[in-house]
Simulated scan of single mutants.
Amino acid sequence: MARFLLVHGSCHGAWCWRDVVPILERAGHEARAIDLPGHGDDTTPAAEVTLDLYARAILAAIDEPVVLVGHSMAGYPITLAAQMAPEKIDRLVYLCAYVPKPGLSLADMRRAGPRQPLLPAIETAPDGVTFRFRPDMVGEKLYHDCPEGTVDFANAHLCPQPITPQATPIAELDRWNGVRKHYILCEDDQAIPPEYQAKMTQDWPEGTVTRLPTSHSPFFAAPAKLAERLMEIATT
């Protein structure tokens, strides 16, 4: 039996794992999805949300070592959590996620990418504290291969994304280096370019990078395939 802790990406919440958690549980595993501070049902004011707060929320949700899965933006907080308390992490799984480099924020890494396909879908709030995804573009950028009804469901749940966590670099990754890692690259991703995902993991050991033929949202597009892949990773 494996223990999974699932962490969402920008503007999302625990709700995005609705189809994956039951599959993992039916297979005999423990699976839990959490809302990061300022997301979903968590009421932390956006102006108070930090990358450190994200990481501490993740660690607070862990009683025994877990397979920690981070989607997209969550590559940063799961990395910081592993840097802070590697003994709590059995292994890390980056699901079409940013893999941090020391001294670079997520925003820095996004700008360093070969292209930024998600940029037209982002609207920054007038106060500069948050951004959101344009409702008319999320289908094209995030859910284009997902079942009917996904866009409406997502638009009813998507929330403003605090900007500070994405503008914060991680200074050191020495303790993170010793944690086992796996990357799931999504080949039809219209948010984080697949070629950039490949570049971020180009020096990873053989067998630690696998692929799914999906969009940026495999938890909706192919939940059974994603769950199967996570179980394979957890038991390998």
Rank of each mutant, 00 (worst) to 15 (best):
81 A>N: 02
82 A>I: 06
82 A>D: 05
84 M>Q: 12
84 M>V: 03
84 M>K: 12
85 A>Y: 03
86 P>G: 07
86 P>Q: 09
88 K>I: 02
90 D>G: 11
90 D>Q: 14
91 R>D: 01
91 R>L: 13
92 L>H: 00
92 L>V: 04
93 V>I: 07
96 C>L: 05
96 C>Y: 11
97 A>Q: 01
97 A>L: 02
98 Y>F: 14
99 V>M: 10
99 V>D: 06
99 V>Y: 07
100 P>E: 07
100 P>N: 06
100 P>K: 08
101 K>W: 03
102 P>R: 12
103 G>N: 05
103 G>K: 04
103 G>I: 04
103 G>L: 01
104 L>C: 06
104 L>G: 00
104 L>Q: 13
104 L>D: 02
105 S>Q: 02
105 S>R: 03
105 S>Y: 07
106 L>C: 12
106 L>K: 09
107 A>P: 00
107 A>R: 04
109 M>R: 07
110 R>T: 09
110 R>I: 14
110 R>H: 08
111 R>N: 13
111 R>S: 13
112 A>E: 11
112 A>P: 00
112 A>C: 00
114 P>D: 10
115 R>Q: 09
115 R>F: 02
115 R>T: 13
117 P>K: 05
118 L>D: 11
119 L>C: 00
120 P>S: 02
120 P>D: 03
121 A>W: 12
122 I>N: 01
123 E>D: 15
124 T>K: 07
125 A>Q: 04
126 P>M: 08
128 G>P: 08
128 G>T: 09
129 V>K: 07
129 V>E: 12
130 T>Q: 06
130 T>R: 08
131 F>D: 14
131 F>Y: 15
132 R>Q: 14
134 R>F: 00
135 P>W: 10
135 P>Y: 09
135 P>K: 10
136 D>N: 04
137 M>L: 15
137 M>S: 07
137 M>R: 15
138 V>Q: 08
139 G>A: 08
139 G>K: 12
139 G>I: 10
142 L>F: 15
143 Y>K: 04
143 Y>E: 08
144 H>N: 11
144 H>F: 12
144 H>D: 11
145 D>Y: 05
145 D>A: 13
147 P>H: 06
147 P>L: 03
150 T>F: 13
150 T>S: 15
151 V>W: 14
152 D>F: 01
153 F>R: 05
154 A>E: 09
155 N>D: 05
157 H>R: 15
158 L>H: 13
158 L>W: 13
159 C>S: 14
159 C>H: 10
160 P>D: 15
161 Q>I: 08
163 I>W: 00
163 I>Q: 09
165 P>T: 07
165 P>G: 04
165 P>R: 05
169 P>L: 08
171 A>L: 10
172 E>Y: 05
173 L>N: 01
173 L>D: 02
178 G>T: 05
180 R>W: 06
183 Y>V: 03
183 Y>H: 05
184 I>Y: 00
184 I>F: 01
184 I>T: 02
185 L>V: 15
187 E>C: 06
188 D>S: 09
189 D>A: 05
190 Q>H: 15
190 Q>S: 08
191 A>L: 05
192 I>P: 00
193 P>C: 03
193 P>Q: 04
193 P>A: 13
195 E>C: 09
